[in-house]
Design a binder for these strands. Structure first.
Lengths: 204, 204
DNA sequence: TAGCCTCCTATCCTTACGTATAGGTAAGCT
DNA sequence: AGCTTACCTATACGTAAGGATAGGAGGCTA
């Protein structure tokens, strides 16, 4: 079983590596960032499993996942994440990831998950999928309508009204309206503050 | 050598644990948060070394460090940190920590540091102390001029150009110029993205 | 001294944002 | 039926933001 493990924290990477090699009889190839990982995938052929840290230089959200997937023949790539937002797991899977592993998971569970994924099975912790069922997890989110949340999401990506309008297939004026009500509800003076407040609160 | 390792990420804690026990002939007692750690210190007597994750439930910045220090007879407590801001290391030491370990450090180096600290010696990576000399601790901040940082600070509060101009006693046009160069340097499309990127990077 | 960099200012112009006002649809409640 | 709420659209206007270009003052340095 050949595994590529990419994480910028040497300590984390090396100890997980050692653990997998001892207990999992796996060969672990290390990488410290996305470009390093892509390079190793190119040179050392496809791996049984590629584990990518979610917050790592070059990852750029889930953009790095797509790159790794195409490099590894479109399969066998999973995301490792520290603070595991359920929605991201969902997105990772829909992009083609074979798994999503929060670091809050135990080492033994990681081992099982790795065996699972290396065998081609998709693995995600159950509680992450459960959270996804009721998306009204956040106190701030409850004050906002679904549409407003969509618009807020755009704001948090720094998109313009026009861009958000295109994404949601609405008119620009409509977006302006939503932005205005958002600013009122979030007690923000403008879109930038609204975005910062939403980020601060942990939405998105 | 008895070590208490407190980290809320099971995976990280367990694999580091395993590593230290295998290679370091240490006995590692785990804890998942600060209160758990304090409890174990109370019950299982003082440890040769206590390792506390910096971002962990209950830590509350370095407040948790002080608590752990007083529980462990005022010594033998070190901080483990993911993204290691040099300034924090400095503060931790002045509070009485026996070490500051960034997770970007290799596993073997951790082992050495642990032996060092368990023997009562203070350990901090050299590069962290060097950085402390020049207060431009942040990688992103180095690319920006002092003025640009001031403007960026205003951006991160959601202020308008006019407001920032008043705060810094400059003309509004000048702020626009700085905002534009900031967007270029931060690779942002507009002020909102610039603010988000700065926040994300931990500036402000 | 000439050249470079940072910082500041200035005009001019286009686009984006924010606000107001007004009206329409659909769903759900009383 | 009347009411509320969420949602979408429209017109219009003033302001903010973003971009281009040009130039000056001061500091640093080859």
């Amino acid at each position: 079983m050949r595994i590529l493990l990419a994480d910028d924290h040497d300590m984390v990477r090396e100890t997980i590596s050692a653990y997998l090699e001892n207990k999992g009889e796996a060969e672990v190839i290390p990488a410290t960032d996305l470009s390093g990982a892509l390079e190793k995938i190119e040179n050392d052929g496809p791996f049984d499993l590629v584990l990518l840290d979610y917050q790592m230089p070059g990852m750029n959200g889930l953009a790095g996942l797509s790159q790794a997937l195409s490099a590894n023949n479109g399969k066998g790539v999973a995301i490792l994440s520290g603070n595991a937002p359920a929605k991201t797991a969902q997105e990772a899977l829909s992009l083609g990831a074979i798994g999503f592993i929060p670091k809050t998971m135990g080492a033994q569970s990681l081992l099982n998950a790795v065996r699972f994924m290396a065998a081609g099975e998709i693995y995600v912790p159950v509680d992450l999928m459960r959270e996804d069922a009721n998306p009204s997890q956040h106190p701030l989110a409850e004050k906002l309508s679904p549409r407003e949340l969509e618009v807020l999401s755009g704001l948090c990506k720094g998109h313009s009204n026009k861009e958000i309008a295109r994404e949601l297939d609405l008119q620009e004026v409509t977006i302006k309206l939503h932005v205005r009500t958002l600013c009122r509800k979030l007690d923000a003076k403008n879109r930038t503050q609204a975005a910062l407040i939403a980020k601060e609160a942990g939405l998105f």
